[in-house]
């Protein structure tokens, strides 16, 4: 049971990391490799507001979401300079990782921030005889709440229908008079805000450091590959599967734990190239 609890809590962190990237990929049809850097900015902003300045965690995370949304807005403008050129977009977003990481190092310094300490999230909660740290529980609650919100937006709203239509056939969607550029902008801002929230919540267990853009990018990519593109349920299931697999492998086969995620990714690519959700962009 402890392994399952550990796996679910890790899965919630992974979902927060991967959901924004999955949405952006689905809506834009291109990888924003700077997604992990946006996560990092969210982590540092939350650290500054909640740990250094003493603002309530909720306020700090909302602040991180707003700043990351603004950052997403700026990034989307940059992507518009090279429309329909995925290779250039990938290279540009990769370059942005270094720009943002170095900016973060300039602003917050090279020393990593320890996992954020929030007094009301200290200690553990007993659930079914299993100890679950309160901060992990909070991450899981926020993760599932965001999953629910994204799913409702994507599946139950007119905007969500536009996003799904754009994912399936962008030209046809535009032909129907839908301003797809504006939809893409909205998704970019939303995805970046979620990355900011992910950074803030993830910082409770991972802290903040300038290597996170790469670490988070790789984990988010694994989640997206396994879960499928642009699918909120697929991303959530993938994150939970990966979290559970990681927890199980670290418990039973610790020497193999580092490669298990990538074996899973390779297996999904071979057996089901479109991911668990089965959706194609």
């Amino acid at each position: 049971m402890q392994i399952i609890a550990n796996g679910i809590s890790l899965g919630a962190v992974l979902f927060l990391m991967g959901s924004g990237l999955a949405l952006l990929l689905g809506a834009m049809g291109v990888l924003n490799l700077a997604h992990g850097a946006v996560y990092m900015v969210g982590a540092f902003v939350t650290s500054t507001l909640a740990v250094d300045q003493g603002y309530p965690l909720v306020v700090a995370i909302l602040g991180a979401a707003v700043i990351c949304a603004a950052l997403g807005l700026a990034l989307e403008r940059l992507f518009r300079f090279i429309p329909g050129r995925p290779n250039e977009q990938i290279l540009m977003s990769f370059g942005l990782i270094y720009v943002l990481a170095n900016l973060a190092q300039w602003i917050w310094g090279p020393i990593a921030k320890a996992p954020f300490r929030i007094s009301w999230l200290e200690g553990a909660v007993q659930i079914g005889g299993v100890s679950v740290p309160a901060n992990r529980l909070a991450i899981a609650v926020v993760g599932f709440a965001i999953a629910l919100m994204l799913w409702l937006v994507q599946d139950r709203t007119r905007v969500g229908a536009m996003v799904r239509a754009g994912m399936d056939d962008a030209e046809m969607t535009k032909g129907l008079g839908i301003n797809l550029d504006r939809v893409v902008l909205a998704v970019f801002v939303l995805g970046s805000a979620v990355a900011g929230i992910a950074g803030g919540m993830g910082g409770l267990v991972l802290g903040a450091n300038t290597n996170q853009p790469m670490e988070v990018l790789l984990m988010a990519l694994v989640v997206v590959v396994v879960g499928g593109i642009g699918s909120v349920p697929g991303t959530l299931v993938a994150a939970l599967v990966i979290g559970l697999l990681d927890a199980f492998s670290r418990d039973r086969f610790p020497e193999m734990s580092s490669v298990m995620l990538y074996l899973l990714m390779a297996g999904v690519l071979v057996l089901r190239p479109t991911g668990l959700s089965g959706r194609t962009a």
Partner: peptide, 21 residues
């Protein structure tokens, strides 16, 4: 196609990390 793009991105990530420092 998307899978190819992702794999290309992973490869690009690895290569660029190699040249980063």
């Amino acid at each position: 196609m998307q899978a190819r793009k992702l794999m290309a991105a992973v490869a690009a990530t690895t290569l660029t990390m190699s040249f980063a420092a």
